[in-house]
Design a protein around this nucleic acid. Sequence first.
DNA 1: TCCTAATTGAAAAACGTTTTCAATTACTAG
DNA 2: CTAGTAATTGAAAACGTTTTTCAATTAGGA
Lengths: 152, 152
Amino acid sequence: MPNVPSPTVHTDLRAHHRKLTRPRQAVLAIITAATRHLTPAEVYRQAKVQYPHLGLTTVYRTLDLLVELGYIQRIHLEEGCHSYAPTARPHGHHLVCSECGRAEEFAECDLDTLVRALQTRTGYEIQVHVLELMGRCPTCQTKSRPLRARKK
Amino acid sequence: MPNVPSPTVHTDLRAHHRKLTRPRQAVLAIITAATRHLTPAEVYRQAKVQYPHLGLTTVYRTLDLLVELGYIQRIHLEEGCHSYAPTARPHGHHLVCSECGRAEEFAECDLDTLVRALQTRTGYEIQVHVLELMGRCPTCQTKSRPLRARKK
DNA sequence: TCCTAATTGAAAAACGTTTTCAATTACTAG
DNA sequence: CTAGTAATTGAAAACGTTTTTCAATTAGGA
Ligand SMILES: [Mn+2]
Ligand SMILES: [Mn+2]
Ligand SMILES: [Zn+2]
Ligand SMILES: [Zn+2]
């Protein structure tokens, strides 16, 4: 039986008195299978293939819900702001080229020492971290140097 | 002679064929003196005190310019997205409470090892890092627990 | 002082996101 | 297998933010 959403989601939803609807299944299918972060608009366009009647409003609402349930995470990027990615994988960060926008993903992030120290000092209960690196990719390094030349 | 912008800015601007105008001075005064991150709208409202004729469009343009010149940095927060803060201080990160929005600043971030490893592996020339932590502040911890209860 | 490129702000457009609301749907209780 | 009901939906409109356009103004070098 293909395309049946994982029983976990179904259970999680029931536990919160939420329904597993066709629109939600379509969004879920796209975002949990994504190999890279997707904007709400991208999720919308792709999920419509499976469920053409889908509304953008519902995409936003479903993405919010999935973040709450911990299935996906919200990502903040320099351009375009706000994408979503599955949380499944250990957990991802991005290294983005500030010139061409090309991005690499990486998973390693040794923040535990920092996080523990900060928790002690501030009393916060730290749950999430956002780490993004920016620089120039190898390709762009071979090109121009200076900080944004004027048009002249 | 009070309120004269630091000679550095003036020089930097000239070097890039840019002018030091009244509107820019007003924006510069606010954002470089800020003790916390400010949104463009906040900068606008505050800078208008000094230069009432200021336009919001100019605030956006000036903030972009100052980022390019390295005087301020763009900050990505969960709510409201996009604030700006002076780069002067060693360099700052934020620990934000996901419930009440209260924020702490912190400066320590041992990313050098990570950054060097990634540079080697990817060939990127890493210039900037964004690190934000989120969690529950001490106050909010004393309140409700669960992940967003339904209204009933 | 003059000249010109850079800059400005109002207005409008373009975005991304949220709210509203009447109609529809998924689950549950019977 | 029904109802009954709360949850959900999507179109439309409202929203707040950011960008574009363009004619008028201005800073700073010649
Ligand atoms: Mn963001
Ligand atoms: Mn952002
Ligand atoms: Zn690049
Ligand atoms: Zn709090």
